[in-house]
């Protein structure tokens, strides 16, 4: 009798498994898109492949203090800060646009960012996410040499990047970002208008809400020879952490650059890590969901 009951129970259990199998069998294979390669749209100074989702407005405050090497009299750089205030908006899930103003050289900037490929597994397989980025910067401070004839176009800078990133596992993500910076006006004939820079960035997640990020911008030699504010231009190196709380991401880092705009950190970084020319930097982001894009799409489909 017990055996019979046992038999029936097993029958019942396998019956349930069969039902689950039945559900799996008829299921079409779906594409599983990788999410959260990076926590926010910046790795530290530079852009990441991430874009804001449709209908999401992001407010970004970027702060770069002075140099640690400036000593106690400047409170290790804290007395001297530059700030960038910016807005970014997800027009679609793949198209992100942004504007900002940096107090450094009173620079206005704007950018457009488009996600070309999304890393995925399943039905559609794609090893990387690829995002194209174009930025523009406008220096609005007073002309350095007001005596000569100055053109508005001389205030303009452009950059074009192709960001390619892969999330290897839930911990590690890596990004390569070849970039071309175009400067309409350069300091001397020795300087090229076009500078090629290779950005390399990575993150290692320590917990759900904490990650360590590293970023390096390597300038292909030969393009820049003039000094910037009396100092040689360096490759930008930044190391910091992401801390995430709900709708905010705080990034706190050390960097030898005071740039929050692409052309600034890529081609005008002058700090020397070995001499302690290190800036403490913050990025604080807050997102606001303007409308529920998924719901809108769902209602449209009906």
């Amino acid at each position: 009798m017990i055996a019979l009951v046992g038999c029936l129970l097993t029958f019942q259990l396998t019956a349930q498994d069969d039902l689950l199998d039945m559900l799996d069998e008829g299921q079409e294979e779906t594409t599983d898109y990788t999410i959260a390669t990076f926590k926010t749209t910046r790795i530290l100074n530079g852009h990441s492949i991430e874009t804001n989702a449709e209908g999401v407005l992001m407010f970004v405050v970027g702060h770069r203090f002075g140099r640690l090497s400036s000593g106690i009299n400047e409170l290790f750089g804290l007395d001297n800060a530059t700030i960038r205030l910016g807005f970014e908006y997800g027009v679609t899930d793949n198209l992100d646009i942004g504007i900002g103003r940096n107090s450094f050289e009173k620079t206005l900037d704007g950018f457009a960012k488009y996600k070309l490929l999304r890393q995925s597994t399943g039905k559609r397989k794609m090893p990387v996410t690829m995002t194209a980025l174009a930025t523009m910067a406008l220096k609005t401070n007073k002309w350095a040499e007001p005596g000569r004839e100055n053109f508005f176009s001389s205030r303009l800078y452009y950059s074009y990047s192709l960001l390619v990133a892969r999330k290897f596992n839930k911990m590690f993500s890596f990004q390569l970002a070849p970039m071309l910076v175009h400067r309409n006006l350069v300091a001397s004939t020795e300087d090229a208008n076009d500078v090629f820079v290779l950005g390399i960035g990575g993150r290692a997640k320590l917990s759900g809400s904490l990650a360590v990020n590293l970023e390096y911008h390597f300038i292909v030699p030969g393009a820049i020879s003039s000094k910037v504010y009396g100092e040689d231009v360096q490759n930008a190196l930044s190391l910091g952490v992401d801390i995430e709380t709900g709708g905010h991401v705080f990034q706190v880092f050390f960097t030898n650059s005071r740039g929050t705009t692409d052309k600034l950190f890529a081609t005008e970084t002058t700090g020397d890590w070995l001499k302690g020319d290190i800036h403490i930097g913050f990025n604080i982001t807050r997102v606001f969901t303007m409308y529920d894009a998924q719901k809108k799409r769902r209602n449209k489909g009906k």
């Binding site: 019956a15 559900l23 599983d32 999410i35 209908g55 999401v56 759900g208 809400s209 719901k295 769902r298």
Partner: peptide, 29 residues
Amino acid sequence: EGGAIVFSVLMKGFEFEKALMQEHFNEKY
């Protein structure tokens, strides 16, 4: 037959009002 019942739910199929919540739900929780 016997009233056996099963459900299968794809976690990434949950849609949130806020995209970031959806990301956190899948990524962290």
